[in-house]
Simulated assay, not measured.
Amino acid sequence: MATLPEKLTEAREAYHRLMIGEAAVDYTDQSGERVTYTRASAPRLAAYIRDLERQIAGLTRPAAITFTTSKGVTQ
């Protein structure tokens, strides 16, 4: 199985091929599933690249983001 840096390199190469005009790019993702990316699905591939970058950096995705708002009323 490929390491995270190898997967990142492959994903970046696939993204580059899409951006230079190849009609579709086949890529095997980290779970071993073969995925075909087209120009229309390039944002999904870019998100996958960002996720790999976060994993390599040791960062995790937050489970939830909580927002707290106020109407400006103070007591």
Rank of each mutant, 00 (worst) to 15 (best):
I65L: 03
E53D: 00
T68A: 07
A23Q: 12
T68P: 01
L18V: 03
Y15W: 08
S31Q: 08
L8D: 06
S70L: 08
T28S: 12
R44W: 09
T38W: 08
L8I: 02
R34D: 12
G21S: 05
D51I: 02
A2Y: 05
I65H: 04
T9Q: 13
A11Q: 02
E53T: 01
A23I: 05
T36W: 07
E53S: 03
H16M: 04
G72F: 09
E10R: 13
T38V: 11
A64L: 12
A24C: 04
I49L: 09
E33N: 12
S41W: 08
M1L: 15
T60Q: 12
F67I: 09
A14W: 03
D29Q: 10
I49F: 02
K71V: 03
D29W: 03
T36S: 15
G21F: 06
T74K: 13
Y27C: 02
A2L: 15
A46D: 09
V73Y: 08
L8C: 09
A57H: 04
T36G: 04
T69E: 12
T74G: 05
Q30M: 15
R12N: 10
D29G: 04
T3N: 00
V73I: 10
D51Y: 00
E22T: 13
S70N: 11
Y27M: 14
P43G: 03
R12Q: 14
T28N: 00
R54N: 03
R39Q: 11
I49E: 04
T60M: 10
S41M: 06
M1S: 13
P5V: 03
T9P: 00
G32W: 02
V73G: 06
D29L: 05
Y37S: 06
M19F: 00
A64E: 15
A63Q: 08
Y48F: 06
Y48I: 01
P5Q: 01
S70Q: 11
A47G: 07
T68K: 14
R34Q: 07
T28A: 04
R39N: 12
Q55M: 14
R12I: 07
P62R: 10
L45P: 07
M19W: 01
Y27L: 12
R44L: 13
I20S: 12
M1F: 14
